[in-house]
Design a protein around this nucleic acid. Structure first.
Lengths: 167, 167
DNA sequence: ATACATGCAAACGTTTTGCACTTAG
DNA sequence: CTAAGTGCAAAACGTTTGCATGTAT
């Protein structure tokens, strides 16, 4: 192992992560999948990464440990994680897929700052309830949904400190 | 009841397709754009088409009248309509852009049947209010959003009668 | 007459896959 | 040993654009 430094935040040890590992192991055994060096590295890196990483971002982080890893391997590994329910694939308006660890908590949606790219998760049970009511009103049964609020976060909003007159 | 406002480009309160034509004309004049045969045909066809047409669908309909029309022309015309606020570009989960006339009153979101592709518009002011409340809670100012409910419509649901025990 | 528009085909950016080589079991 | 995984490069996919030709004004 590389005795580089002790990671400050080790999400792989947060509550729930162990269960995810179990789910993953079961899934891989069941599908005759092998635990390769690359997969281990990619999965570990993903679990320690900030939420909503893109494939490219993750690839960059992974390559700091092993520069030979290819895009396709990261791509396929993330697809696999999504397939077995450990990760969720998200498509915001920036054009590429992002992945987040499936949390044990309930469902959440997202606020996205169009200036700095910050992504904040929110939960609003009342909205969830209203969604079901709306669907019911139209005879729909909802299987999944997408709810994204785009705008400016507190740091990017004009008004904090005026003087925003550019030449 | 509604007096027809004249000449001013006031999109937000446009009552009908006729006004949209006026807005369009004004936009084209202002941008030195020409009223070509193709554009007329494409725009007329779009306005008569069902809501949420894709470029390919519209191209198909347009080619029934003039088989020489190219994809790029439809593409550019729809972009232009979106640019001047007459059409809205939507991206659902089927991978390609769809366009709808902006003629309708206030904002709406969508229910999409994942079986037959049916798209239903819904309006729910309470959800809109809650969105603003949520954004405010996180210090965000919302500029736009995306809210899509995916599921099965009444026609595609298993068990027209009841059948509520099916994962 | 000439700037704008068209239609083709090729460029794009991201995702997905075919394939020869490598490797875990 | 052999089925599964890797990395590369190329295909696929919808979207976007450069360019030679056509046309509305």
């Amino acid at each position: 192992m590389c005795p580089r430094q002790h990671s400050l935040v080790d999400l792989s040890k947060s509550p729930g992560a162990e269960h995810l590992r179990d789910v993953l192991d079961a899934y891989m055994v069941e599908h005759g999948m092998r635990a390769t060096e690359q997969r281990r590295l990619i999965i570990d890196t993903f679990m320690a990464a900030e939420p909503h990483v893109s494939i490219d971002e993750l690839l960059g982080q992974v390559r700091q440990k092993d520069a030979r890893i290819g895009y396709a391997t990261v791509y396929r590994t993330l697809k696999m994680l999504a397939e077995c329910g450990i990760a969720h694939e998200r498509h915001f308006d920036d054009g590429f897929a992002r992945y987040e660890l499936a949390s044990t908590e309930s469902h959440h949606d997202h606020l996205i700052c169009t200036a700095c790219g910050r992504i904040v998760e929110f939960e609003e049970p009342q909205i969830e309830d209203l969604q079901l009511a709306v669907a019911d009103r139209y005879g729909f049964v909802v299987t999944h949904h997408r709810h994204e609020l785009y705008g400016l976060c507190a740091d990017c909003r004009p008004g904090e400190t005026k003087a925003s007159t550019d030449p």
